[in-house]
Amino acid sequence: MKVALFIPCYVDQFYPQVAIATLELLENLGIDVTYPSSQTCCGQPMANSGFEHLTGGCNSLFVKNFSGFDYIVAPSGSCVLHIREHLHDENEPELAKHIAATTYELTSFLTDILKVDVLKSSFPHKVGMHQSCHGQRGLKLSQMTELNAPDFSKPGQLLNLVKDIELVELDRKDECCGFGGTFCVAEETVSVKMGKDRVKDHAKHHVEYITGVDLSCLMHMEGILNRQQSPIKIIHIAEILNGVKA
């Protein structure tokens, strides 16, 4: 199985340790992983701002970088959702469609394709799981509280394989953190208020770490936590699943 690693632009620039954890996690599961080095961004920042018509360059670059693989895996629900829903290429329409359909968010790739049921990692900490909306409601990584439907959680299923981890139940299990792409600066006040309220819910349940499948949400909450000088830390789920190096 040939897998391409798709690392969102801001993860590449600011959170390389998460990309490394993703790479190692997949390698340790025996996967042949390649990181196409000419990748940049999925184009979501423009598209969500109403400029989807400017994403042609990103799209053709994405198709060029990620063709020839069985799967494309990224440690982000949001970027994967964007690719799944919006990737298209006028010159290579079928190829673009195929790439979009075989692009996976990391945790669902682990549960649905690799069917991982054992992990070696241990994480003896109290952890709050942030449900990132695009992963949860967009990619259906876990059940949504609004629906009258059976409960499940792909990230939760994986975290439960980690030794010694203590997952807390939040008051509001799946409320948005307020990041929202350019919303975080265009609607700064509401964005920050939403983030503060999310962080407060985790703090109320005495977590040491907030984890999730999307660093964009975690980066936003980290910015708030650090400004508040809170001891709570953020950690991407890939780092926990891969086993954090001491």
Binding site: F14, Y15, A19, Y35, S37, I224
Partner: peptide, 16 residues
């Protein structure tokens, strides 16, 4: 109202 993320030594691309 938010701190910027800490700057890593290198990007993942550079590390890779």
């Amino acid at each position: 109202q938010r701190e910027m993320p800490k700057v890593p030594k290198s990007s993942f691309g550079e590390w890779y």
